[in-house]
């Protein structure tokens, strides 16, 4: 073999080895997916006892999904049944029904309440999963406020495709984790599991979706929307 060919092969082999060893971790710049601005009434009453009052609260999220301070405008569809102050304090005056609306910068949320003989507050929300990107995620879940915290529970019929680095998020987008709350790494690919969430991080109605998200690769495996 000619010496020049020998040198070429040796250098070529060395180059191949170096290519493997030196291939480094790069950086991907991700464009954050904008979401609709959202106003969420924190606590949903189903009924308010005549003569009693109730303090409504609402959270505002900008189109980056980030929570911002907001001066919410409160209104009632029937002030004679349930009135509400500018600060969100509602009072039931007579039997009937009224819709309470919260509004800020065009974003609004509303809840219809009965004025009756007792105050009933919704303490749980439910939903079902469906897969995304042809991954299998199914089963039911619920979010319950109990003992000063939220409990996100996947029912025994839950199952998900195995995947790398799957995490559970509460989100206001069906497709992204923009502004979402990371609940934690998935505990198991099937079966009942419970995720405690501090009320300091989310209220019962702060988010609309539960996402199963492959965090390292940034891929949505499945989503579920709260039915109520």
């Amino acid at each position: 073999m000619k010496s020049s060919e020998n040198v070429m092969i040796k250098h070529g082999l060395l180059g191949l080895m170096l290519l493997s060893i030196s291939s480094c971790i790069g950086t991907d710049v991700v464009d954050v997916e904008l979401v609709d601005e959202r106003l969420a009434i924190d606590t949903r009453l189903t009924s308010l006892a005549v003569g009693e009052s109730y303090q409504f609260m609402a959270d505002y999220f900008n189109n980056m999904g980030e929570e911002e301070m907001a001066t919410v405008n409160w209104s009632s569809s029937n002030e004679g049944v349930i009135s509400i102050s500018a600060e969100g304090l509602a009072e039931a005056h007579m039997l009937g029904e009224a819709t309470i609306t919260a509004e800020y910068l065009g974003a609004e949320d509303m809840v219809t309440i009965s004025a009756s003989d007792q105050t009933v507050e919704m303490t749980a929300r439910t939903g079902s999963f469906m897969g995304a990107n042809n991954y299998s995620v199914n089963g039911d879940f619920n979010l319950l406020e109990e003992n000063g915290q939220l409990l996100l529970t996947f029912e025994s019929n839950f199952q998900a495709s195995t995947g790398p680095g799957l995490f559970i998020f509460l989100s206001n987008s069906p497709n992204s984790i923009t502004g979402a709350l990371e609940v934690g790494a998935i505990q198991a690919s099937r079966g009942e599991q419970v995720y405690p969430i501090s009320l300091a991080n989310a209220g019962l109605n702060t988010y609309d979706y539960v996402l199963v998200w492959c965090k390292p690769f940034g891929v949505l495996f499945g989503r579920g929307r709260f039915d109520n």
Binding site: M17, S23, I25, G26, V29, P216, G218
Partner: peptide, 25 residues
């Protein structure tokens, strides 16, 4: 005899790290 797998880190436009990069040999 030598395999390497890499995963880029994810940052947003403000430079906030969304997910760490990783590698294995």
């Amino acid at each position: 005899f030598f395999s390497r797998a890499t995963l880029n880190e994810q940052v947003d436009r403000n430079g906030n790290v969304l997910a760490q990069g990783d590698a294995v040999n």
